[in-house]
Write a protein that binds this DNA or RNA. Structure first.
Lengths: 245, 245
DNA sequence: ACTTGAGTTCCATTTTATGGAACGACTCGG
DNA sequence: CCGAGTCGTTCCATAAAATGGAACTCAAGT
C-alpha cells in the first residue's frame, strides 16, 4: 500500500512551519515525480484528506482530519482523567496547562487549557517538540528505563546531560524547567500511565517565570501531584513516583 | 487510488460515538471483505494513520493525525483572527466559546475556549453536529443564498422551518438558540468570511441559560459583533451583516 | 513572442489491491 | 477437554491500481 505511505508522508509535511502545501512543495520535500505528486494530492483531496485553500493550488489538511485528534482523546480514559486534573489546576492557578504524549523522541500536546491570567503562556497544541528539551518530554522519558533511553538517544550528543536530568526527574517525581524552550516561561510536568493500555501522558502547567515564586510553584506541583497520584492509583500505575517537593 | 478512499472511510468511522475500531467493526461498517479490512488496518498502522490501543486489536487514530487539526488552524488567517475575538470574549464573560466551520450539512468546532465560570458549558470540539440544529450551523448556513440552502436541504423535512430561521438570522446578523441542542444551554453565533479564500467561520459563545439575562446576552452579542465586524472589514467580507440587537 | 515554472494528462509497464477460502488463536458453555 | 463461535491473518490467481517519463496547458514574467 505504497499510496498510503505516500499520503502519510504528505500529511507529515504539515509540520510546525508548513501550514500549506503545493504540488511542487511535495515534489521538493518528498523527491517524488511531479506526476505522482499531482495525482496523489488530487486523490487525497477527493478523499477529504486534503482541501485546497480557496481556489489556489495550496493544500491544507481536509475536514476529515479535523475530528481525529478529538477521537484520539475520546479513545483514552487516561487522557480524560488527566484533562480533568489539568483543567482544574489551570483554572485554579490561572496558568495554561497541557496534556502531552510522547512519540519516539518527540512530544505533542493532545489537549490544552488556556490560562486566565492577563499574562499567560499561549497554547501551542499540535506542535511537535524534541522530548529531551522540555519538562513535559523529560517527565515522559523518565518513565522509560535507563537502557531504553540510551537506545533511543544512541549517538545523541545530549545523552549524558539527559541521563542526569532524567534520574533527577525519577527521584523527584516531577520535571521542571525554567526558561528553557521559551525565555520567561517555566514549566512543571508530571507523568502518569495506564498499564492496561501502555499509554503514558504528561500533565503540565506552563507559566510566566516572573509571576510565580518557589512557593507558588510548589503549590502547583502539589496540585498536579495529587491528581496524578489518584489517577495512578485508580488505573494501577505501579511505576508512579509521588512527587517530593 | 481506492486504498486512499478506503482509508478515508475508515477514518470517517471515528465519529461521535466510536472511539475505536476493530477489523470486524470495519467489516460491519463498511461492508468490506475482512481480508481487505485486516490488510488495510495493518497498512494504516504502519503509516501511523492508526495505532492499536495497548496490545488489543482496537485501533484509534495514530499520532500522525494529532497535529493536523492544528495545521488546519494555522493555515487560516481567518481562524486565527476569529480565535482572538472569541478568546477575548470567553475570558471577559467567563463562558465557553468556539470557532466552527461548516462541511456540507454539518458543523465542527476547530477551536475552543473553555469558560472560567463555575457553571460553564463543557467544550465539545471535534464533534460533528447537524448544521440546521444549532445556532453556529445556522449562522453559517445563513451566509449561503436561499437557493443554495434549498438545494442542500432538498427533500429535508426541516427545510421550511430552516428557511424562516435563516432569514431571521440574515436580518439580525446573528444566530441565537435557547436550550436547543442541550437543555439549559443557550448559544449565540456570528459568522464571518474571508472572500480571498472562500472560508467562513462562526464565532460562538455558549452559556448556561439560567445565568444570563437578555442584557447579558446582548452584551455578548455586541462583543462578538464588534470583533467580527473588524475581521469583516480587514478581510473584505462584503456580505457581513452587522448584528442589530 | 519567448522563457520559465507550476500543474495536469497520457500511456505502456510494473506493482499493488482484491476477495474467496483456508488457517490459526481465542473464548465461552457444556 | 471438546466443539462451536468469533475474530484476525495469510495465501493465491486475478483484476485493478500506481508509476514515471514525456507531452501538454496555463499563467506569469521579461
Amino acid at each position: 500500500m505504497s499510496v498510503l505511505n505516500n499520503a502519510a508522508d504528505v500529511l507529515r509535511c504539515f509540520g510546525n512551519d508548513c501550514p500549506d502545501l503545493t504540488v511542487s512543495d511535495v515534489v521538493k520535500l518528498l523527491g517524488m515525480p511531479k506526476a505522482n505528486a499531482s495525482r496523489l494530492l488530487k486523490a487525497m483531496r477527493e478523499a477529504n484528506m486534503l482541501e485546497t485553500i480557496g481556489d489556489s493550488h495550496r493544500h491544507r489538511p481536509g475536514r476529515l482530519m479535523l475530528d481525529l485528534a478529538a477521537a484520539y482523546r475520546r479513545s483514552s480514559l487516561l487522557i480524560g482523567r488527566a484533562s480533568e486534573v489539568v483543567a482544574e489546576a489551570s483554572s485554579t492557578f490561572g496558568h495554561t496547562g497541557y496534556i502531552s504524549v510522547r512519540d519516539g523522541k518527540e512530544v505533542t500536546a493532545v489537549a490544552d487549557f488556556q490560562g486566565t491570567n492577563a499574562l499567560r503562556v499561549v497554547s501551542n497544541i499540535g506542535r511537535r517538540l524534541p522530548a529531551h528539551l522540555s519538562a513535559t518530554g523529560r517527565s515522559l522519558l523518565a518513565r522509560l528505563g535507563e537502557e531504553t533511553v540510551h537506545a533511543l538517544y544512541a549517538g545523541h550528543s545530549a545523552l549524558h546531560d539527559l541521563s542526569e536530568q532524567l534520574s533527577k526527574v525519577r527521584h523527584q517525581g516531577f520535571a521542571y524547567s525554567s526558561q528553557e524552550a521559551t525565555p520567561g516561561v517555566d514549566a512543571i510536568a508530571i507523568s502518569v500511565a495506564d498499564p492496561r493500555t501502555d499509554e503514558a501522558v504528561s500533565l503540565c502547567i506552563v507559566y510566566p517565570h516572573a509571576l510565580v515564586d518557589t512557593k507558588g510553584r510548589d503549590e502547583m506541583i502539589a496540585a498536579l501531584a495529587k491528581g496524578a497520584a489518584r489517577i495512578a492509583e485508580d488505573l494501577g500505575d505501579s511505576a508512579f513516583v509521588a512527587p517530593r517537593i
